[in-house]
């Protein structure tokens, strides 16, 4: 740091000293650059020259969710409050992480034939790619903007039909 060191390549030297426009000796002393750097970080430290803190204080200030954000899933309901899902298994088929498990049954309603008896998403396996939403022919599953996906147990992270319908 105090004196010229010799490891720099000639190419780098010419380039760098041309850029800096100072004597080679002074440049290779490094100290001017070091102090320039120190001065720069000091400006950040004291927030001079328009520097400001970028941190968003998360729990108090939530960052706005952008359009198209893919958070937790939701099963949609139709006008009568029944699940829209007809258990066609398209989401399970398309799911790249194999996190959806469906067991179908006959629907008890006159206007529908099939519905899911069990609809589970293993949120621990889910990669939130949104393919299920794209594959759904009935617009029955969608990804919400919920991103606070914390649980204290693993079993909590396997969302069943009720949880998904109320999500």
């Amino acid at each position: 740091m105090s004196q010229a060191t010799e490891e720099s390549t000639p190419a780098m030297n010419t380039q760098a000293s041309a850029r800096i426009g100072k004597s080679k000796w002074l440049f290779r002393l490094y100290l001017p650059a070091v102090f320039k750097g120190l001065f720069n970080t000091f400006l950040h430290l004291v927030k001079a020259k328009g520097h400001k803190t970028f941190t968003i204080q998360y729990p108090e200030v939530a960052r706005p969710v952008r359009k198209g954000y893919r958070g937790e899933h939701r099963l949609k309901k139709d006008a009568l409050g029944r699940e829209k899902c007809v258990a066609c298994f398209m989401c399970q088929t398309v799911c790249p992480s194999n996190c959806i498990r469906i067991v179908a049954e006959e629907a008890p309603w006159p206007d529908r034939d099939k519905r899911p008896k069990i609809f589970e998403i293993d949120m621990l396996r889910c990669i939130y790619c949104g393919m299920c939403e794209e594959a759904c022919p009935c617009d029955a599953i969608e990804l919400t903007e919920k991103f606070n996906v914390v649980s204290t147990t693993r079993t909590e992270k396997i969302y069943n039909k009720e949880k998904l319908l109320s999500n």
């Binding site: 950040h44 430290l45 927030k47 970028f54 941190t55």
Partner: peptide, 10 residues
């Protein structure tokens, strides 16, 4: 704290 301030953090 100082590192945070230098890096425009909290």
């Amino acid at each position: 704290r100082i590192s945070a301030w230098i890096q425009n953090r909290v």
